[in-house]
Design a protein around this nucleic acid. Structure first.
Length: 549
RNA sequence: GCCUCAGUAGCUCAGCUGGAUAGAGCACCGGACUUCUAAUCCGAUGGUCGCAGGUUCGAAUCCUGCCUGGGGCGCCA
């Protein structure tokens, strides 16, 4: 029995109890959930539904719990129901009902964990979105890992997701970038506001290889701009691809300008009555929707502001049919939330259409001291450096296992050592161990058969493992709903732990030449199911599940 | 000043849409390898959940105030 099924049975038992006690069923929730108690004495699952509803219904929680327990005890698969404390229901399943899950998981294979919690949503998820003025730096790498995992988690939860990267290859930062290339080619020092660092010299050399006469061109900087941006962006895309982060759309801000979408957006906002002119500039009255000040769209010199392009981009996404726009930004962009949300409302969209996720920054430490990184000074640790230092799996996992709300302190030395401190090895090892057991089973001709007798799975370690396995779909659903993919990593660690403990205490294969028993076969199903869930969880994080380590 | 994130074991962090005795990894101490991978497991140590109030059957979790630290508050991009 899955926790979801049990929760439904608890709810219907509660409904019956309300009827028996003549209580007002209107106070009952539409859905409930059971939780896994920490203390095994509290059964396999616990429900607090009596506590939650008794007061509203004007009755005593314990009395209500007693009635629910009476109804629930006769349910198929429920071995025991205890009432504890102020009115908790502690439910114990019989082994056969608990063990069914292994078969369901094996049958579902790589679709186990999929759920419908975000079904029907067409989501545009924008992340990384760095301009091609330098390598993808560590902060953006965090979003490459977290954003990609979030896209996967939301897809597994039934949403249609377009992963999108927004960039601008025409702004003043790009001018600084191309001026830096030109200066480097001429052997001049890095210009003011320019970029330094080894990668500038590399790109410069590559541009000169493509265009040996670049310096003699009418507008040399333009040659360096076009070719340099191309090379830089190619490098970014290839680094991201190597990192396993996939984007469905690379969207260039330039297209918005070329297609006149800024004018169209302003016109739309004007029609909604939110545009005004002041001091020769054009403004959006974002304060109507809670922003702390109004925001300019077109400067008094006639130039568009960056915010105007944001408005056009927003409208573009909406017109492409997305009903949910999610943007992941670093904490240094927190100040944009107010105007962006106001803009969304000014277009007439419901709150919640636009979701801006703010992730805290990554601090790099060396010898315990903060390391200041600057693209301009060239002291940048890029995505490629990280990958070559510790590998994709370790990097992705390390970045994705923390809540985006927490800033991360990463010690470079720790990272550049290929250290087993990284919990990813703990999870991957569990998978590799299982693969080993399954290989041995195959070698020895031990087959798990078409079906198994789940009632023999009575060991505490088996029970713990089965409960952990059963939890996976709700973990995925929660991770998607809360936009918190790190939950998947934490879950994987828990599951790996449950498996290691199981394998330590429970012999899976027959010893020596003994004939396989029902217990051996049933355990093989559990092992196979665990392998499936570990592989699925790692896949959601974009981390490989090795067969051997 | 305003906004925002964080403050939980020696360290790095989970837990936070209210539940029972607050967890994991690392570090440290002590155990377990003739046995399916010991990259593992078991045990011990380690806590005023930043502080103070409040809400209630119940608060690490919700509310208010304060303290400390990170980030942000341009007709920049």
């Amino acid at each position: 029995m899955t926790p979801e099924t049990l929760a439904e049975k608890v709810l219907s038992a509660t409904r019956d109890a309300f009827e028996a006690l003549n209580l007002d069923a209107a106070v009952l929730p539409a859905a409930t959930a059971v939780e896994r108690p920490r203390d095994p004495k509290h059964g396999d699952y616990a429900s607090n539904i009596a506590l939650q509803t008794a007061k509203k219904a004007g009755t005593n929680p314990r009395a209500l719990a007693e009635q629910i327990a009476k109804n629930l005890t006769s349910t198929d698969g429920v071995a025991k129901v205890d009432i504890a404390g102020p009115g908790f229901l502690n439910i114990t399943l019989d082994a056969a009902a608990a063990g069914e899950i292994a078969g369901k998981i094996v049958a579902a294979g790589d679709t186990y964990g999929a759920n419908e919690s975000m079904a029907g949503h067409n989501v545009n998820l924008e992340f990384v979105s760095a301009n091609p003025t330098g390598p993808v730096h560590i902060g953006a790498v965090r979003w490459a890992a977290v954003g990609d995992a979030l896209a996967r988690v939301m897809r597994a939860s039934g949403a249609k997701v377009t992963a999108e990267y927004y960039f601008n290859d025409a702004g003043s930062q790009i001018d600084n970038f191309s001026a830096s290339l030109l200066a480097s080619a001429k052997g001049e020092p890095t210009p003011e506001n320019g970029y330094g660092g080894a990668y500038i010299a590399d790109i410069t050399a590559d541009v000169l290889k493509q265009h040996p006469d670049a310096l003699d061109a009418d507008d040399p900087q333009e040659v360096f701009r076009v070719a340099g941006v191309d090379l830089m962006f190619a490098e970014i895309k290839s680094d991201l691809a190597d990192f396993g982060t996939h984007f469905d759309v690379f969207f260039n801000e330039k297209d918005l300008h070329d297609k006149g979408e800024l004018d169209a957006a302003v016109e739309r906002l004007d029609k909604q009555g939110h545009i005004f002119e002041s001091e020769g500039a054009l403004w959006l009255r974002t304060t109507t929707f809670g922003d702390d000040k109004d925001r300019p769209l077109k400067k008094s010199n006639g130039e568009w502001t960056y915010f105007a392009a944001d408005c056009a981009y927003y409208l573009d996404k909406r017109e492409r049919g997305f009903d949910k726009l999610v943007i992941m930004l670093g904490a240094d962009h927190h100040g944009y939330i107010g105007r962006m949300q106001a803009m969304s409302r000014a277009f007439g969209d419901e709150p919640g259409t636009l979701e801006i996720l703010i992730g805290q920054l990554v601090n790099l430490l060396r010898d315990g001291k903060p390391l200041r990184m600057s693209k301009r000074a060239g002291t940048v640790l890029g995505l490629d450096d990280i990958v070559s230092a510790i590998g994709v799996d370790a990097a992705r996992y390390a970045l994705a296992r923390y809540s985006a709300d927490s800033s991360i302190d990463l010690d470079i030395d720790l990272w550049t050592r290929n250290s087993s401190d990284n919990p990813v090895y703990y999870v991957q090892y569990a998978h590799a161990r299982i693969a080993g057991v399954l290989r041995n089973a195959a070698d020895r001709g031990v087959d798990k058969g078409e079906s198994y007798d789940a009632s023999v799975l009575t060991h505490e370690r088996e029970s713990d493992l089965l409960k952990a396995l059963a939890e996976f779909p709700s973990v995925v659903a929660t991770a998607a709903e809360l936009r918190e993919p790190h939950r998947v990593a934490r879950y994987a660690e828990e599951l790996a732990g449950a498996y290691h403990r199981f394998q330590h205490d429970c012999r899976v294969l027959p010893v020596g030449d003994e004939e396989p028993t029902d217990l051996n076969r049933a355990r093989l199903w559990v092992v196979d199911a665990t392998r499936t869930v570990l592989a699925n969880a790692l896949a959601l994080l974009g981390v490989s599940a090795p067969e051997r380590m």
